[in-house]
Simulated assay, not measured.
Amino acid sequence: MVTAADLTPVQPQHRFDEARLAAYLAKHLPDFKPPLTAQQFKGSGVNPTFLLHSPGRNFVLRKRMLPKKGISLAESINRDFVLISALYDAGLPVGAPQHVCADDSVIGAPFYILDYVPGRHFRDPNLPGMDARQRNEIYDAMAAVLASIHAVDPKITGLPLNGGGASYLKRQIAALDEQYRANATDEIAAMERLLAWLPANVPDEDVTSLMHGNLRLENLVFHPSEPRVVAVLDWDVAVIGHPLADLAINCMPYRVTIPGMGSLQGIDFIESGIPGEPDYIAAYCRHSGRERIAHWNFYLAFALFRVAVMAQGIVSRGSANGSAPPTLKAYGAVVRSVANQAWNLVDGGDD
C-alpha cells in the first residue's frame, strides 16, 4: 500500500488553493464531496502527481508544467487524458479517468483527475524484504504488463502515428544526436562512434506499437497481496514507436546505475530470485508471443545511448547554472561509461 514514505506535503513550488480546487471538483465530479486535502507523491518529476483525500473517496491529480513538443500545455494534458481513457477502455491497468481541466487558473496548470488505485509501490528494483519466489513473480508481472501495452492497437490511443517502428528509431536517433551536440562538454570517442553507427544500422524489422517510454518498477502499482499490476503510472512520454526499444529502456537497470534510481548491477540473480536479463527477456517473449528477439544489441545500444544523452543534458545544465550539485560528477561518469558500454555491444557487429 502507499505509505507515508511515498508521500510528502505539497512542495512550495507546486502548492495550490485546495479550497478552490474542491469547489471546482464539486461542480465537475458528481461523486466528489468536500473538504479536500492534498499530498504530493515523491519522485513525481517535472509533471507532479498528487493524492487528493476527500470523504469516502481518494483521487489522483496529475498536472502538466511542461508541454509536449509542438503543442500547448492544454493540448498536452488533454492528449494524456485521451490516452489514459483509451487504455482504460481497452482494459489496461490504469486509474479510471474522471476529468480533465485545461484551465490553468484553477491550480496554476492544466491537470487531469483519475481514481486512486490502492496497492503496493516499489521504488527499489532489488525488492528488499521479499523472498526469491515473490521477486520472480513481481518481475514476471512487469514483463506481462509491458507486453500488454505493446499489444494495444496504436490507432485507439489518440497519439500521433507519425510512422512508428524503424521510422521512430531513425527520428529518435536524429533528435538525440542534436540534443547531445547542443549539450556536449567533452569529446567522448564512443559517443562519436555511436552517432555514426546507430543511424546506419537500424534493423529492417518495422514493428510499430504503443511505447510507455519509462516503464520501471517505480512506475507500477501492484495488487496489495498478489503479484499483479493494477495501475501503470507516468504516461508523459508515451509515443507510438517500437516495442523493442521500449523493452530495452525497461531493461536499463540491468545495465546502468543512475544516481537516485537504483540498479540491478552486481546482484546475485539466482539467490535473489530476480530474473537476469536473458530470463526477463524470455518472460517478455512468452507474454508477447515472440519466439526470439533479433538485433537485441542494437536496441540495447539505442537505449544506452539515450541514457547517455539525457545524463549529458544534466551535466550541461549543472555546469551552466554554476550550482555544481554533488551528483554532477556522477552523471558525467554515467555519460562516458554508458557510451563505452553501448559501443562495446555493437563494435563486433549486431547479433
Rank of each mutant, 00 (worst) to 15 (best):
H223E: 09
H223W: 06
P224H: 10
P224L: 15
E226F: 14
E226C: 10
E226P: 08
P227T: 15
P227G: 15
P227D: 08
P227A: 13
P227E: 14
R228L: 15
R228F: 07
V229S: 03
V229N: 11
V229A: 08
V230Q: 00
A231D: 06
A231I: 06
L233S: 07
L233D: 05
L233Q: 07
L233R: 06
L233G: 05
D234C: 09
D234E: 09
D234L: 14
W235P: 05
W235E: 07
D236T: 09
D236K: 11
V237R: 06
V237S: 15
V239H: 07
V239P: 02
V239F: 00
V239M: 04
I240C: 05
I240N: 09
I240R: 07
G241W: 03
G241I: 01
G241D: 15
H242I: 12
H242Q: 14
H242V: 07
H242W: 05
P243V: 14
P243T: 04
L244V: 08
A245L: 11
A245Q: 01
D246L: 11
D246C: 15
D246S: 13
L247G: 04
L247F: 05
A248C: 12
A248I: 01
A248Y: 01
I249S: 00
I249R: 12
N250Y: 06
N250A: 05
C251T: 10
C251A: 14
C251G: 11
M252A: 10
M252V: 15
M252K: 10
P253D: 02
P253Y: 11
P253G: 02
P253Q: 11
Y254L: 08
Y254M: 10
Y254R: 03
Y254G: 04
R255G: 03
V256M: 04
V256W: 02
T257D: 06
T257M: 13
T257F: 12
T257W: 09
I258M: 11
I258A: 10
G260L: 06
M261R: 15
G262V: 06
S263P: 09
S263R: 10
L264E: 05
L264H: 07
L264F: 12
G266I: 13
G266F: 13
G266N: 07
I267D: 03
I267N: 09
D268I: 10
F269P: 01
I270G: 03
E271F: 15
E271D: 07
E271T: 00
E271S: 15
S272M: 08
S272N: 00
S272D: 07
S272V: 09
S272K: 09
G273Q: 08
G273E: 01
G273M: 08
G273N: 03
I274D: 00
I274H: 02
I274K: 00
I274E: 01
P275K: 12
P275R: 11
G276D: 13
G276Q: 14
G276W: 06
G276T: 14
G276R: 05
G276Y: 03
G276L: 03
E277T: 13
D279P: 04
Y280P: 06
Y280H: 13
Y280V: 02
I281V: 15
I281G: 03
I281T: 08
A282Y: 05
A282W: 00
A283Q: 10
A283G: 02
Y284E: 02
Y284I: 04
Y284N: 07
C285I: 14
C285Y: 12
R286M: 09
R286A: 06
R286P: 02
H287S: 02
H287W: 04
H287Y: 08
H287A: 05
S288A: 12
S288T: 14
S288W: 00
S288F: 11
